[in-house]
Amino acid sequence: MVNAARNESDVIFILLGFSDYPELQIPLFLLFLVIYMITVAGNLGMIVIIRINPKLHTPMYLFLSNLSFLDFCYSTVITPKLLQILVVEDRSMSFAPCITQYSFTVICVVTEAFLLAVMAYDRFVAICNPLLYIVVMSQKRCALLLTSVYTWGIISSSLFIYSLLILSFSGTNIINNFLCEYSAILSASISDTHVTEMIFFILANFDTFFTLIVVLTSYLSIFITVLKMHSASGRYKAFSTCASHLTAVTIFFGIILFLYCVPSSKSSWLLVRINTIFYTVVIPMLNPLIYSLRNKDVKETLKKVIEVPARWPSG
């Protein structure tokens, strides 16, 4: 730990981003700027809509507003730095900001994964045990679930960061990506990384597969329950309440699992960067669009908000 502290000031990370495609720097900057603006407006707008409509003060929308908050934070941690390295020549990042960015990224990713699992559990209770829904998903239970989700996100991040800070670092290091990520920081170490890699392996797999098991178990139970329904309209209504969440879950976990499977080779770096763009930049933009376009209550509230200025008297 002493060595790590002594060497931190000398450690520099160079974020390559998309520098190997110089002709695309400005178009990519404009594209990601538009995506970021939509992300901020979409997620903050979703939070405001849920807060101003008493009809949306239910567990499902409480979790959705927290998902929007996480997506806003997640995008804000990543995208501004991405925009910066697309337009400036100096792509360097010192040790402390790099570790800080990685820390907040882990908090957002882990918390969102567990929140999506909680949302799947919420849909399971609503469809499989509708008569007990108000009791099971009480305000106290929802608050406890949210507190647990955020707490575990912070604990996971702290353990990941601790596993890196026990190492010694030195010199200038190249990151063939646009953000500080685990493998790049680890490669800068001049220490034995066995313990750190073991901590990462255990935590990453626990977080990923535990949340996946909760999601898959919840939706398997939902699917079985819906198939037993005699009413076609009942089955359609049940599936429609899950459609938005299932779409968000499929995209989120699909991309993360795909990144797990990408081999570490030079030919795969572009693919890794593209997929990283999807789960760090694009998904935070897509989530509010997915939920607003497929949700009748949200669309009605949004329509009312848009119509209000039109009713104001001119002059």
Results as ranks from 00 to 15, higher is better:
N3Y: 12
A5V: 08
E8H: 05
S9N: 09
D10A: 06
F13D: 08
L15S: 08
L16W: 08
S19G: 09
P22R: 01
I26L: 15
L31F: 11
L33F: 03
M37E: 07
A41Y: 02
G42E: 01
M46C: 14
I47A: 03
I47N: 04
L67A: 12
S68Y: 08
S68C: 12
F69Q: 06
F72I: 03
I78P: 07
P80E: 05
I85L: 06
V87H: 02
E89S: 12
D90L: 06
D90W: 03
M93R: 10
C98G: 09
V109F: 05
F114A: 01
A117M: 02
M119F: 06
R123I: 02
F124L: 14
V125P: 01
A126Q: 10
A126M: 06
I127C: 03
P130I: 05
L132S: 13
Q139A: 09
K140D: 05
L146V: 09
L146R: 07
Y150P: 04
W152F: 12
S158V: 10
L159D: 02
Y162I: 08
S163Y: 05
S163N: 05
L164F: 02
L165R: 13
L167Y: 10
S170K: 05
G171I: 07
T172C: 02
N176R: 15
L179F: 12
E181H: 10
S187P: 00
S189A: 10
S191T: 06
D192C: 07
D192A: 07
V195A: 14
V195D: 10
M198C: 08
M198H: 09
I199T: 12
L203N: 11
F209Q: 00
F210D: 04
T211N: 11
V214N: 00
V214I: 13
S221N: 11
V226C: 10
H230P: 11
A238N: 02
S240H: 06
T241P: 03
A243S: 14
S244Q: 06
H245C: 11
T247V: 13
T247M: 09
V249N: 03
I251S: 03
L259I: 04
S265E: 12
S267R: 10
R273S: 12
I274F: 13
N275P: 00
F278G: 11
F278E: 08
V281W: 00
V282L: 15
V282F: 11
L286Q: 09
L286W: 10
Y291I: 04
Y291R: 05
S292K: 00
N295M: 04
N295K: 06
V298S: 10
K303E: 08
E307S: 14
P313S: 12
G315P: 01
